[in-house]
Nucleic acid binder design. Structure first.
Lengths: 151, 151
DNA sequence: CGCTATTAAGTTGTGCGCAATATGGTTGCG
DNA sequence: CGCAACCATATTGCGCACAACTTAATAGCG
């Protein structure tokens, strides 16, 4: 334990591992909270965006909002379509684009998950203000990592 | 935008999405930083644990440390074995257990990644103290979520 | 108008994560 | 000892993530 050659490699000293573990713990919690909707966590995120805009969105717009590419979104959207929650239609004005829109079932699902954010908040054991502060820190982190990555 | 039915579902208000995005941004950064070692980020975490203990570890111990199960670890460890970084041997004293130990190449790799934590820290644009505070907050978050999940 | 560059989505392949299950080894109880 | 719980690991199946590539459509320039 003492005198290791590279102390900076200690798992417990690093930020990356708790971050990774926290994401997985949150995802696991969502499995429980979303049980009954049939949604996975990434599918829930897509639905959040669609509920928010109430407009048909292209795959690319969805991807920009969620930082996901077509390799992830295409099969995910096909599953949402198979579940009857969204429609996927080529944009008549630009046949390259696929517009994703909510079905009636998809729209109706919003009510069923309205309590999820509160339930998750309660599971995290932090106040709303702490959550918002943490959110801001993580958002900044992402911005910095993006910059570093593109440099 | 204004007057939506369930404002608590707004993506930008939620903690979960930046958390999810931050983990993916960190993982992406690791791809760059670990290029040349042939390691993925989860494989790097396994190596961190092995470098730390310097003792053969069972799959279960590794899993407890990293919160991963055999379904994830078994194939990952086989890839590390194929890369010549670890050995996998049945425990002679208990043939149910598989002991994972470092090869010489595996041990030698530690030096090559010694600079990675510092490089990642620089990419995140936060001070060491901020990183440690964030680490503690996330660790607490995980503890709470575990409690909620098992309740 | 015709051709090239660009863009959008889809496809393929690899590696997680994890639930559910299978397989084989060990323990402990009668 | 025999056998029924229990335990450790492995396997299977599904759904992400994402890089690299393909296909099809559009834009823009000469």
């Amino acid at each position: 334990m003492s005198g290791r050659t590279y102390p900076q490699l200690a798992l417990d000293l690093q930020l990356c591992f708790p971050l990774y573990a926290a994401t997985r713990a949150v995802t696991k919690r969502y499995v429980t909270l979303l049980k009954g909707t049939g949604l996975t966590y990434p599918q829930y995120l897509v639905m959040l965006v669609l509920w928010e805009t109430e407009e048909p969105l292209s795959v690319t717009s969805l991807g920009q909002r969620l930082r996901l590419d077509s390799g992830t979104l295409t099969p995910l959207l096909k599953r949402l379509e198979a579940a009857g929650l969204v429609r996927r239609e080529r944009d008549p004005g630009d046949e390259r684009r696929v517009l994703v829109s909510l079905t009636e079932d998809g729209r109706a699902l919003e009510e069923q998950v309205a309590g999820v954010p509160h339930q998750l908040g309660a599971s995290m054991g932090i106040t709303r203000d702490e959550a918002l502060a943490l959110r801001d820190q993580l958002t900044e982190l992402v911005d910095h990592l993006d910059t570093a990555e593109s440099a």
